[in-house]
Design a protein around this nucleic acid. Structure first.
Lengths: 158, 158
DNA sequence: TGCATTTAGTGGTATATGCCACTAAATAGG
DNA sequence: CCTATTTAGTGGCATATACCACTAAATGCA
């Protein structure tokens, strides 16, 4: 019956499913290369983003990570507890808090750079440099605020 | 200083980060379209996979979802609790359990199909059909067991 | 100036996911 | 046939992530 056909269509044609599957796979693969260190691959990503952002506010960091603000707060807790990052008050706005890496966090991050590079090189080789870069570009586009806005707008006028 | 440059490189060139950001974004966007129904977008994906698999064993379902077996078990709990799916023993192997949708689960899934279609259409339009299909193909490749095996093998011979 | 509104974070609750240790069942060897 | 090993699931614990309600601080405006 055609029912089976349609059901198959869903998981084959759902970009949301597809991206989640890939995310789980890469979480495993990168995590495996990073090894049983103190930092998970998600935490490494977060520390890297913080490092490249200077001393971002929680809000801006959440935006950069395409993450809910409260989710970021929760995610930061183990890192705070383990002394990888610290929170500072903003001098101009008492509502605002900024995050930065501690020396410890910076050190850990540095230790994992080589492993990350290894994982990323394997990935690039397997997929092909061009395809890999193209993929990251597309994913960046999907993660952009502009994409979210356009997606929402597509619903309005529909 | 060159330090800043290198740090920037990480989050810009990390496929793992990129795919997770995109996953969070799409989770939000698809979730928004599915609305405040009983099912989250991840649950919809899972039900769809079950529906298209017949009565899969937990093991095979986990494989199809590119998910850890125990993670699948946990994820299934709310769906079992809410009567969306049910577990059956395998007649040939007492270790094995199979899952299937209940009438309720099938109904819910059906109700959400239109909304999912809407979300997916918006996505395809925004990215362009070709690029969208190409993306799903690439993500499927990344999620494949072959990719995982090749990735692991790249480490050995390295 | 004074209050209504908006903005940044926090904490609670629930789902999503992974790792490890453990159990039961099947299977391979001898 | 009996035991060592492998296989399928379960349960505990930890992180990842979202939504909601709530607080405090800043801002807009009459």
């Amino acid at each position: 019956m055609s029912t089976t056909r349609k059901e198959t269509d869903v998981w084959m044609h759902c970009s949301n499913s597809a991206v989640r599957r890939a995310a789980r796979q890469l979480g495993q693969l990168y995590g495996g290369v990073l090894g049983a260190s103190d930092l998970r691959s998600t935490q490494f990503s977060l520390l890297s983003q913080i490092a490249s952002s200077g001393e971002p506010t929680l809000k801006s960091l959440a935006g950069a990570m395409v993450m809910d603000l409260s989710a970021l707060g929760h995610t930061l807790k183990p890192l705070l507890r383990d002394g990888m990052v610290e929170m500072l008050p903003d001098p101009h706005d008492k509502r605002v808090k900024r995050v930065r890496l501690t020396a410890e966090g910076e050190a850990r991050r540095g230790e994992l750079m080589a492993a990350w590079r290894d994982a990323q090189d394997r990935f690039d080789s397997l997929l092909g440099r061009d395809k890999s870069e193209e993929l990251r570009r597309t994913l960046a586009q999907i993660g952009s605020p502009e994409f979210a806005a356009a997606f929402a707008a597509a619903g309005k006028g529909d």
